[in-house]
Nucleic acid binder design. Structure first.
Lengths: 136, 136
DNA sequence: GCATACCCTACTTAATTAGTAGGGTAATAA
DNA sequence: TTATTACCCTACTAATTAAGTAGGGTATGC
């Protein structure tokens, strides 16, 4: 299951991408428009800012805004930041690889075999999509 | 993340598929060979039996065995039984569809748009694989 | 200098996962 | 028939994660 964090993060990014002239939008406005708990969204936006997708402006008239063009924001990166590994098991993860402690031989492992295909198919989708591709 | 339940279930199915003459295998033997907690595996095998993949034989010389040929066991079905929905959000699920309560219009939803692609790509992989394809 | 709006830490609640414990019951071989 | 094997079932629990709350701190700009 996709976490709410990822879901809300994607919606917020899409909402920001749809702004005219990329003007700062207040957390409260995004939260209201997308039906998200404001405080929860706050923490999500914070982590997106730290990951370099967006920046914030304090004080009156402030808010969050994208610092890249939507077409330069690949879904692969967004998903890794919000959701974590794309692979469903650590032993097939490219960026978060870990050996299974219960599995003596990855090459003989049936779970490994199918999950490798699943990872590749998901990666292909994410690589073919940027933020620009998923906004309405 | 793939749950341990699914991981162990897949491993057990693969182990059974590798048996000569499809002879019954005791829970204890599978558990030992695949490094799984025996009691936990017991509950997993039970649910696989109820789903019609395998049957059991009681008494001495008993155990679990497949009741279909591995090539007739599609990964799509196995995954749905063990892991549940293949889709990452209910609003793009074929078998477990549910409307998002926070989302007024699915067609305009960016999360829906990308997750639909992810579901389709995963489905294609699962549909192209049976248990026979993932055993070593 | 004050209101605005982001920033940050810590805590809490609920749900799910992964397992444990312990006994019950059916089938088989001797 | 009887002992043994091995599956069957319910209930409980510990650990983890997700999702959200609370409450104040701090920088900015008018």
């Amino acid at each position: 299951m996709l976490s709410k964090k990822t879901k809300y993060g994607l919606k917020a990014l899409a909402f920001l991408a749809n702004q005219k002239n990329n003007e700062p939008v207040q957390i409260a406005e995004i939260a209201k428009h997308e039906n998200i708990s404001q405080k929860f969204l706050e923490s999500i936006l914070l982590s997106l800012r730290k990951s370099g997708f967006l920046a914030s402006k304090k004080g009156k008239g402030g808010g969050y805004y994208l610092i890249k063009s939507p077409s330069e924001i690949p879904m692969t990166t967004v998903m890794r930041v919000l959701e974590g590994p794309i692979a469903m098991v650590p032993c097939v993860s490219l960026n978060f690889y870990e050996k299974c402690d219960d599995c003596p031989d990855e090459n003989a492992c049936s779970v490994n075999k199918i999950m490798l295909q699943i990872r590749d198919s998901a990666l292909e989708v994410y690589r073919n999509n940027t933020l620009a591709d998923i906004i309405s």
